[in-house]
Design a protein around this nucleic acid. Structure first.
Lengths: 333, 333
DNA sequence: GTTTTCGCCGCAAACGTTTGCGCCGACATC
DNA sequence: GATGTCGGCGCAAACGTTTGCGGCGAAAAC
């Protein structure tokens, strides 16, 4: 119990009005140099820290808080992304409200509400799917929103995406170059933009190579480890099993490796493997994992920068950034 | 621009005073059943959501926001921990303000300030070291704080720790059982409680086995990957190199594996390896990694629960929880 | 000498809540 | 019939800011 130290306390000690104090803090209005100096000194003496809550209540926006809603922070991809957002926020003296919605639409909606109730300055999120009424409501309410990773089926809002199609294309194409003809694909959810696009990339590579698009070699997972395991096991139990696997996210890749180990198959001799998204241990794995590395940190950084730009110029036309993933060929393929 | 819908709007539509509305929301004061029903109906019609900012401004605490300050969300340990905190928070209708301080005392201080300015209900954090004046200031100001993972050199505040000494002891003891006599240790920072305790555990195991405590086999890292790499390289380049390595966190373990690979050493034949803290790929690694698994998620969960308990009964004596780590013997040792 | 201009600053309202206090009517008590 | 009790509700202050407006004194313009 020692910190109260509000504007009025400072004003009292400095023998000026609270308006003067407020204005010296925000550099708004005309206050003489000497008065400013004096007020600043008193603030230092008292260790005054403005109350962000009161500030937000009064001013609505411009109040140094932004919201980040992601599926799951335990996914290294989103951890990197979150870190990118936070670093930019920190540089701009912003704090970040972080929420995990766990691929659950209700939870996403709940957290969107929280963001509005907290009157954050803006929200960064990968929408749970391309038509997302909850997100739309928020956008219509005037809240700045930028989509990252996944996006909405409408170009009118800021977004930063990763070229999923290209990444998947490169991965599968690489497998084809290595001589594989039967390539098993573990895709993401069919109703997510990333899932659809990565699958499209696979198809494109196969078509281009004149390969038949064998629907029996495609499985749809939920981006979680367990589905990777079971779907890979499924694929590898086929009468004519694939000689290579393309797994379209990191957690499912771990699951696929489980399945491969369980069958005592050797990578890459008996089954080659390319995963989407890098992992901390991937480079030192045995064999080192060939992956499509997504610039997750950069995506977060760019999204935050886009958001700050919009806060500065609200009328700016919506921009769409697309970042390039990178195929890192190691030894699992 | 559509939702304003404040208390006064609801009151106007329901033809009651704002006090009545507020009281039906919070179930405080005496309001007749019928009036409550009526008010609730109007709230539903308007889609009213209470403004958390105003609420926090007015009431100071009890306002559904808590702060979590961690070194780095990119570390899977802290990601799990954060998730544990968030899940409990979600169940209690709380949101989480997340910050990464990057082992930087200034940044920690900055974020502690932010937390106070945001008047969060409480703060969960691993203090940067055992005497942490910044954290002390916050505690003295009356803000509920619970330490997790690391702790302060004072028993008077809530804490949940993991038995680091025990974990390290088990790991090194296991190595000794396997016949190793020269065990290289990559420790954490000497001034962090986790670093000190893990090292103490090592020592205890070695003493108990009657092994000489060879200072030349101990290196102090900073819990980051690169230091793991260079220190392991250092250790393995010794005239009489260790036959086993104990690395006291996950990121440094990855670095150590890099170094081992660079030297083309085989695990565990030429050098055995036990890491502190599990990793997503550890179980499917080749060879699967022997690690001390920390219950990170549980630690976060417990910390949050402790915090909620304190919010409910502020006078409750400080409790100290210690969770047990688990040695998972796989094949790298 | 009177009026205008202008730089500097204070007053007070507003943001959306919570809450102590007090009012009013109904019913019980004497 | 006068007094006390009590349930149900409203009034208004407070939380710490920002900001439109207006005041005041001094310098400038006439």
């Amino acid at each position: 119990m020692e910190r109260s130290s509000s504007l009025v306390e400072v004003a009292r000690r400095a023998k000026v009005s609270i308006s003067t104090v407020s204005r010296t803090i925000n550099q708004t209005g005309k206050i003489s140099q000497e008065t400013q100096e004096h007020v600043r000194r008193v603030m230092r003496e008292l260790g005054y820290k403005p109350n962000r809550v009161a500030r937000r209540l009064r001013a609505g926006g411009k109040c140094h808080l932004l919201g980040l809603i992601i599926p799951n922070i335990q996914n290294p991809f989103f951890a990197d992304l979150a870190r990118g957002v936070e670093d930019v926020a920190f540089r701009n003296n912003y704090a970040v409200l972080l929420c995990n919605y766990d691929e659950d639409a209700d939870k996403e909606r709940f957290y969107l509400d929280v963001m509005q109730q907290e009157s954050v300055d803006g929200i960064i999120l990968p929408p749970i799917h391309e038509q997302d009424p909850a997100v739309w409501r928020v956008v219509r309410s005037g809240m700045p929103v930028v989509c990252v990773d996944r996006s909405l089926a409408d170009a009118s809002i800021d977004r930063v995406e990763i070229d999923n199609r290209r990444g998947a294309f490169d991965a599968v194409n690489h497998l084809i170059q290595r001589g594989h003809r039967r390539i098993g694909v573990i895709s993401g959810p069919a109703d997510s933009s990333t899932g659809r696009e990565r699958l499209a990339g696979c198809r494109q590579a196969q078509e281009q190579a004149g390969l038949a698009l064998t629907a029996d070699l495609i499985r749809y997972g939920d981006y979680k480890q367990e589905s990777g395991r079971s779907l890979a096991a499924d694929l590898l139990a086929l009468p004519e099993p694939p000689t290579a696997l393309f797994v379209s996210n990191n957690l499912m890749t771990i699951g696929a490796i489980e399945a491969i180990h369980a069958l005592r198959l050797r990578i890459p001799e008996q089954v080659a493997l390319v995963g989407f998204d890098d992992l901390p241990l991937a480079a030192v794995f045995n064999p080192p994992l060939t992956v499509v590395r997504q610039p997750a940190y950069d995506a977060g950084r760019s999204a935050a920068e886009l958001l700050f730009q919009r806060l500065e110029t609200p009328a700016r036309p919506p921009t769409s950034l697309v970042l390039l993933p990178e195929l890192i060929v190691r030894r699992s393929s």
